[in-house]
Design a protein around this nucleic acid. Structure first.
Length: 639
RNA sequence: GCCGACGUAGCUCAACUGGCAGAGCAAUGCUCUUGUAAAGCAUAGGUUAUGGGUUCGAUUCCCAUCGUCGGCUCCA
């Protein structure tokens, strides 16, 4: 199933892949009324697969020495990987942007000459001989013959003796199809090459780096144009762009990459979110704690973080004769709070919560605005529970996360159970622990009737987890909230409590974060709402606009009253015309513009305009305050 | 980290093959006192990311470093 195959990519917070997802899902939505065939069986899939072949044919016209790797259809298009060899200096030959234009034009020319896609098979031996000089194809054939993995790295059920071949004109490729009948089934004006870039053979950074070209292909030009327009729209709501325009955050080169500075407006937004969660946690019996940003290296050696994640932690800091780490996680610190006194079963469940800032080394090429940073704040909590409380507490956390998501207006989300990969050494603890954790999560999810998918290899190193994956208005998926069950750290730190029986018992830990990280969450919020946040989250909820200088005094009085009612207000007293002030407020996506002139001043009123271009006319100030404060209180989405 | 593109005023962008670095917006000052998406005039703003090199002369060509963007890889 295509759905499964692309799953890994779906969860990467990667912009371009996200775009692929957008279109794929949008397309499926469009087509859902027409037919329910899976993507892999659809005509669009065949068009894209065939377009990849034609692209390879076009590349060979200009780079006859190119060696072909793989060229599959993907969510909204296709790609093909090539090894173009090296130049005289020994540097890999790459595609220039001009090359893409040339190749695209060649493709269009080739598409117009109608060529039939013909399928055949070759024995493994014949195929190896035929693809002599194509080492990547040979490797694929050998792996198929050995019954290992197919071209997408998926396990093959059994060894094959024959491989599929597709040919059109002189272009022959190892391929199991399916394809469109002939090149005329691909419209030349419905394809476009989008970008090129390096890509490791088989996705392995220890293997050669190939040159990948991404393209997109659709049934017709209308669909292509709609897709390109969608890409533009997504670009316009990029949180990095909006963050700058709306004055939410700034990344200074002098402070450092991946270390965002929160500007006043961004801080108001973030603190509002934090305040909301603090309140929700207070109601659920969480206890606040605060811990420092560094801790001794030994702490992380004890916890096991250091050996497992050495590569993504900063080098220890030498202080006197000891080494300290910038904390990569909050749990060890919270564990030390648990251990600060003798615990009894009466203390449990103990729910310690902190907006804890952590630092992780991310490779420079991975940084991205607020969604991928090197220092970020987790809305963290660790629940220390007795084994028989585990399920109940887990359900409580799931309930909290659902509450948070629903309040944000996030209706479209799903859950994913991440389990360990038994073949990987990435995971600590005994198989029994893992089974116990997974069983507890499944049981809890079943009890609350929560559907989830299971993905092997998506667990934390210390235990299985349930992730909440949110789909934004552009239908992109983001992993946000997470709940993790942990039997390991309590053991590593030898945690215990005295039970009613007077004996020592070991607690279980639950790690959880509804937002995930404040940085990423705000980044996603910006894009989801396109910067037009619900009133309760808007950094500036209303701007008072005096029509002339003589109305500034009244405008200030209005602002004072609004502030007294708890609203965030600005007065635009600039020497500018009202129209310009309205325009500015619109561009800042300020929810309400309150225009005040002679008429309003006389009647103690404000003329209400919304960012939705709705002019509601004059209204008594008291009425506006009642209206706005009630919307804030209920965290309403509308204005 | 790897491959590629790029880095000019606070922001968005110009400057043909090397020949005195420019515009709009924003900022500041003045005039206008305005009724629902941009009033007018003026002023100021730059070691063209940083450091080397080639050249009579470098924003432009070359090298290195840093950073941004797009891919890849990674992501507790």
């Amino acid at each position: 199933m295509a759905k499964v195959r692309w799953n890994r990519e779906r969860h990467r917070p990667n912009r371009v892949m996200a775009f692929f997802i957008v279109i794929f899902v949008y397309w499926r939505h469009l087509m859902s009324n027409v037919s329910d065939v899976p993507y892999i069986e659809s005509e669009l899939y065949r068009i894209r697969h065939s377009a990849a072949h034609v692209m390879a044919e076009a590349v060979l016209a200009y780079f006859p020495e190119a060696r072909l790797a793989i060229g599959p259809p993907i969510e909204d298009g296709f790609y093909y990987d090539f090894d173009l060899g090296k130049d005289e200096n020994g540097k890999p030959i790459t595609f220039s942007p001009e090359d893409l234009d040339t190749i695209e034009n060649k493709m269009k020319e080739l598409l117009k000459q109608n060529a039939v896609f013909e399928q055949s098979t070759k024995s493994v031996a014949d195929a190896l001989a035929f693809f002599a000089g194509q080492p990547y194809k040979q490797e694929l054939i050998e792996e198929l013959a050995a019954g290992k993995v197919d071209e997408n790295g998926n396990p093959v059920s059994e060894a094959v003796s024959e491989v599929g071949i597709y040919q059109h004109r002189n272009f022959v490729d190892l391929c199991r199809g399916p394809h469109v009948p002939a090149t005329r089934n691909i419209k030349a004006n419905a394809i476009k090459l989008l970008r090129s870039g390096g890509a490791y053979w088989r996705g392995d950074e220890n293997k050669p780096q190939l040159q990948r070209i991404y393209g997109t292909a659709w049934h017709n030009k209308v669909e292509l144009d709609a897709y390109l327009k969608r890409l533009e729209e997504a670009k316009a709501r990029d949180h990095r762009r909006l963050g700058k325009q709306l004055g939410l955050f700034h990344i200074s080169q002098l402070v450092g990459s991946g270390l965002p500075l929160w500007l006043p407006k961004g801080t108001v937004l973030r603190e509002t979110l934090e305040g909301f969660l603090r309140q929700a946690q207070l109601e659920r019996g969480y206890l606040p704690v605060i811990t420092p940003h560094i801790g001794k290296l030994d702490l992380y050696i004890t916890s096991g973080h250091y050996p497992y994640y050495k590569d993504s932690q900063y080098t220890p800091i030498d202080v006197d004769d000891e080494k300290f780490m910038l904390k990569p996680m909050n749990c060890p610190h919270h564990i030390e709070i648990y251990r600060s006194e003798a615990r009894s079963y009466r203390d449990l469940p103990l729910r310690l919560a902190e907006f804890g800032t952590v630092y992780r080394y991310e490779q420079s090429g991975e940084l991205n605005g607020l969604t991928r940073v090197r220092g970020f704040t987790v809305d963290d909590s660790h629940l220390f529970v007795a084994p028989d409380q585990l399920e109940e507490e887990f359900i409580g956390v799931v309930d909290l996360i659902q509450h948070v998501f629903k309040t944000m207006g996030f209706d479209d989300f799903r859950a994913r159970l991440g389990t360990n990969d038994p073949n990987s050494d990435k995971y600590a603890g005994s198989p029994e622990m893992w089974q116990k954790g997974i069983r507890a999560i499944r049981h809890a999810a079943d009890r609350v009737g929560m559907a989830y998918t299971v993905e092997e290899g998506e667990a934390a190193f210390y235990g299985p987890k349930l992730d909440f994956i949110f789909r934004d208005v552009l239908k992109r998926e983001w992993q946000l909230g997470t709940v993790q069950v942990d039997f390991l750290l309590p053991e590593r730190f030898d945690l215990e409590y005295t039970g009613a029986d007077g004996q020592k018992h070991r607690p279980v830990m639950i790690h959880r974060a509804p937002f995930g990280s404040m940085e990423r969450f705000v980044g996603i919020l910006i894009e989801h709402f396109n910067g037009a946040f619900p009133l309760w989250l808007s950094p500036v909820q209303a701007v008072v606009i005096p029509i002339t200088d003589r109305h500034v005094e009244y405008a200030k009085q209005v602002a004072t009253k609004l502030r007294a009612a708890g609203l965030r207000v600005e007065v635009d007293a600039d020497n500018a015309r009202m129209n310009a002030k309205i325009r500015n407020a619109q561009l800042q996506k300020t929810p309400y513009m309150l225009v005040v002139g002679d008429a309003e001043e006389e009647n103690n009123a404000v003329a209400v305009r919304t960012r939705e271009n709705e002019n509601r006319g004059a209204m008594p100030l008291a009425d506006f305050i009642t209206h706005a404060t009630s919307l804030v209180q209920t965290k309403a989405m509308g204005l």
